[in-house]
Design a protein around this nucleic acid. Structure first.
Lengths: 116, 116
DNA sequence: TCCTTATACCTTGACACTCGATGTATATCT
DNA sequence: AGATATACATCGAGTGTCAAGGTATAAGGA
């Protein structure tokens, strides 16, 4: 019954975050939480498999960095291929977005001229 | 490798289409194709299960209507509950849309003030 | 006549994605 | 000592998508 969040464009978000700076997984989660203020959350069970997949396809590279405290962070860096992928996914997202809105806008106002 | 289309907001689209007029399944598919010009397609294997689910949850009602040719069409009609569902799904969609764009817009232009 | 295409319905099974739950480990705070 | 925060990761149930297949009628072409 619970509405599953279904991000679906998760890899787009990950790539976009990494386009600004190298980040580690936990950081991406908290960043998104901060930015979106709980309108949705990126779950660990969603994120980590995606990072793996992106690394396997060489869209990102990772390196570990010890933190003074003693823990180790695994940073991810966007590759050139990843940047291209980002462009493509972004475009796909906007197409998708427009398509949905195109259908919705016909809703009750109705019959709009389909020309310019 | 093939990018699966992943409509994900399919039921929203179905509800939206039905908010204007009663429609039958095949018609929804062709309508969307017409409106969106192949930017994506609603597949039968996706649509029919959703119509079933919407009917089971009483968001839509169906009735059959014979066509002069001899075939029978199964029309779907949006109920009051369905209209409410549409409002909710629409709102969820816009929240989702904004969230994604919120992340994307920070991309390269960077550091926007987070206040109003 | 047969074959293809279009209309119109529907199901199945493989695959993909999400996420709650669970597990590891360290550091800090109470 | 126990809870919380940081930081990594996996698993399995549930759900959604879609190619493929199936049924059936009608029209158009070879």
């Amino acid at each position: 019954m619970e509405r599953r969040q279904n991000l679906e464009h998760t890899s787009l978000l990950v790539l976009s975050l990494l386009s600004r700076e190298d980040m580690y997984g936990y950081q991406m989660i908290t960043e998104i939480q901060k930015k979106l203020d709980s309108s949705f959350t990126m779950k660990e069970g969603t994120l980590y498999p995606i990072l793996k997949k992106l690394e396997a396809s060489e869209a990102v590279e990772s390196y570990e960095q010890p933190v003074p405290g003693g823990r180790i962070r695994k940073y991810y860096h966007l590759t050139a291929a990843g940047r291209q992928l980002l462009r493509r996914e972004e475009e796909a997202w906007h197409t998708y977005e427009k398509s949905i809105n195109q259908i919705l806008k016909c809703e009750s106002g109705g019959i709009l001229p389909e020309g310019s």
